[in-house]
């Protein structure tokens, strides 16, 4: 079942299209990765589906309703963002107390444990908190709120590796006990690759990838070997990236190659990060190619993978 649905959603700021005719769904009780470069439109999309911004055009449904100014929908939504500001008069404890009042599923014991683990100084003025401590305030709220739809937008700026791992561990453990729909938006793709079950990649306001991690993982491979053999092998598939060295070639392919002669070739799985980066670059190059007129784009690329 889909919890969130965006259909043809566009958000324009003056001349820029931050989000351009985007359609995707978020499924119930699944961990989604919303990935993309800075300024790709991830945050704008999340702000719209939490009712904080209004789309220029298109249709957004969250739990079947328009989220804008919809208290019934929003009380089931928790949106943790890196840029969240807290009132200057707050100490850290006030932010958690406020969250406890708002979210119906709030688990105070869980919050207390997380405060210990992240070593959050509760009596510290919010203004005096370090970047990492500020991030842990958001992370604690996001986890303890147990909102049916929880979005994390770059939630861990300034958090050290141990704290990030603690976040992932708690997220997975708590998700197993209390399933919900989670969206993780981050640049640290490698770190979340094992957590996210569905990947949506947005670039220049457009969706360039939207599939389950499993499909993506099984479909993408790097193939290396003698140039001729590699070219034969990759014929008919999307070549997202190509490196040539002497007579050897290494390509990143999307779409599972059927059983072919691989004796002289080395076929390896691709990390999610590599796949996302190369797909984004591929998309960018295509756009640039389109600007130079027809026929200029990579001949082997088909643009869409299904």
């Amino acid at each position: 079942m889909s919890v969130v649905s965006l259909q043809g959603v566009t958000k324009r700021y003056g001349e820029t299209r931050a989000v351009d005719d985007v359609s995707f769904d978020l499924h119930e009780n699944r961990i989604h990765g919303l990935l993309g470069r800075n300024g790709a439109g991830k945050s704008t999309a999340m702000r719209m589906l939490t009712g904080q911004e209004v789309p220029t055009s298109g249709r957004i449904r969250v739990f079947g309703e328009n989220p804008y100014e919809n208290a019934d929908v929003l009380q089931r939504v928790c949106f943790i963002k890196e840029s969240q500001r807290y009132p200057d008069i707050f100490i850290a404890r006030h932010a958690l107390e406020a969250a406890a009042m708002v979210f119906p599923n709030w688990d105070q014991d869980f919050a207390d444990r997380l405060v210990d683990e992240f070593r959050l100084p509760l009596k510290q003025r919010v203004r005096k908190l370090s970047r990492g401590q500020l991030s842990s305030v958001g992370v604690i709220i996001g986890l303890a709120a147990r909102a049916p739809l929880t979005l994390f937008d770059e939630p861990y700026l300034g958090l050290d590796a141990v704290a990030r791992q603690a976040f992932y561990d708690h997220l997975i453990a708590d998700y197993a006990e209390h399933p919900r729909t989670i969206v993780l938006s981050t640049h640290l793709i490698d770190e979340v690759a094992d957590i996210i079950e569905h990947v949506t990649v947005i670039d220049r306001g457009r969706i360039v990838m939207d599939d389950s991690s499993e499909n993506l993982r099984s479909q993408a491979v790097t193939v290396s070997g003698p140039t001729k053999a590699v070219e034969q092998f990759s014929d008919g598939h999307d070549v997202l990236h190509r490196e040539d060295l002497g007579g050897f070639t290494r390509v990143l392919l999307a779409g599972v190659p059927s059983e072919r002669e691989t004796a002289s070739l080395q076929v390896e799985p691709v990390s999610l990060q590599q796949l996302v980066v190369r797909t984004t670059q591929f998309h960018d190059a295509e756009l640039a190619g389109a600007g130079n007129g027809p026929g200029n784009s990579n001949g082997t690329g088909k643009g869409d993978r299904s």
Partner: peptide, 20 residues
Amino acid sequence: VQTMTQMFPFALGLSITRRD
């Protein structure tokens, strides 16, 4: 003035509607 410049963004961050 600060209620709106500081508390309002925080409250909306906690999924509270503008109306409320």
